[in-house]
Amino acid sequence: DSWHDTVDGIELELHGADEELLKLAKELLKRGVSEEEVRRIIEELLK
């Protein structure tokens, strides 16, 4: 799946992010949310 590559990229960027955020990112990508949107959501949550 192409979203796996996206998640791997996000995981590299979010090496400090907790497991729950990564699960959320994967779930959003699986549901068709764009990579940009996922990054934006996670950045908001990390604030």
Rank of each mutant, 00 (worst) to 15 (best):
D1F: 01
D1C: 02
S2C: 04
S2A: 10
S2V: 07
S2M: 13
S2H: 12
S2K: 11
S2R: 05
S2Q: 10
S2W: 14
S2E: 12
W3M: 12
W3S: 14
W3Q: 12
W3Y: 10
W3N: 10
W3T: 10
H4P: 12
H4L: 13
D5G: 11
D5W: 03
D5C: 06
D5H: 05
D5R: 01
D5I: 05
T6Q: 12
T6W: 13
T6R: 10
T6I: 14
V7R: 05
V7N: 11
V7P: 11
V7Y: 13
V7S: 09
D8L: 13
D8A: 14
D8W: 02
G9N: 10
G9D: 11
G9W: 15
G9S: 12
I10H: 07
I10E: 04
I10D: 07
I10L: 15
E11I: 15
E11N: 13
E11P: 05
E11A: 10
E11F: 09
L12Y: 03
L12P: 05
L12T: 05
L12S: 08
L12D: 04
L12H: 08
E13L: 07
E13Q: 06
E13W: 10
E13D: 09
L14T: 05
L14E: 04
L14M: 07
L14R: 03
L14Y: 07
L14K: 04
L14A: 05
L14Q: 04
L14N: 05
L14S: 05
H15I: 12
H15F: 06
H15C: 07
H15K: 09
H15Q: 11
H15R: 05
H15T: 09
G16M: 07
G16I: 13
G16V: 09
G16Q: 04
G16K: 03
G16C: 02
A17V: 15
A17K: 08
A17M: 13
A17R: 06
A17N: 06
A17C: 03
A17Y: 12
D18R: 10
D18E: 06
D18V: 09
D18F: 09
D18T: 15
D18Q: 09
D18N: 14
E19W: 14
E19D: 13
E19P: 15
E19S: 10
E20K: 14
E20Y: 15
E20Q: 13
L21R: 01
L21M: 10
L21I: 11
L21W: 05
L21Y: 04
L22H: 05
L22K: 05
L22C: 04
L22I: 10
L22R: 10
L22F: 10
L22P: 00
K23V: 06
K23R: 13
K23Y: 07
K23C: 02
K23L: 05
K23A: 10
K23H: 04
L24V: 04
L24H: 04
L24W: 09
L24E: 01
L24R: 04
A25E: 01
A25C: 01
A25M: 07
K26V: 09
K26Q: 11
K26A: 09
K26I: 14
K26F: 10
E27L: 15
E27R: 15
E27A: 15
E27K: 14
L28R: 00
L28V: 00
L28C: 01
L28T: 00
L28H: 00
L28A: 01
L29W: 03
L29R: 12
L29Y: 05
K30N: 14
K30G: 09
K30I: 06
R31A: 08
R31F: 05
G32A: 02
G32Q: 01
G32C: 02
G32K: 01
V33M: 10
V33K: 07
V33G: 02
S34H: 06
S34M: 03
E35G: 12
E35K: 15
E35W: 15
E35Q: 13
E36H: 12
E36S: 11
E36Q: 13
E37P: 00
E37V: 08
E37H: 04
E37T: 07
V38R: 01
V38T: 03
V38C: 02
R39P: 00
R39L: 09
R39E: 02
R39K: 08
R39N: 03
R39T: 04
R40Q: 07
R40S: 06
R40A: 08
R40E: 03
R40H: 06
I41Q: 02
I41W: 07
I41H: 03
I41V: 04
I41G: 00
I42D: 00
I42R: 00
I42N: 00
I42E: 00
I42W: 01
I42M: 04
I42G: 00
I42P: 00
E43R: 15
E43N: 11
E43L: 15
E43T: 14
E43G: 13
E44R: 10
E44P: 03
E44Y: 15
L45H: 05
L45V: 04
L45P: 00
L45E: 02
L45M: 11
L45W: 11
L46Y: 06
L46G: 03
L46C: 01
L46T: 05
K47T: 08
K47N: 10
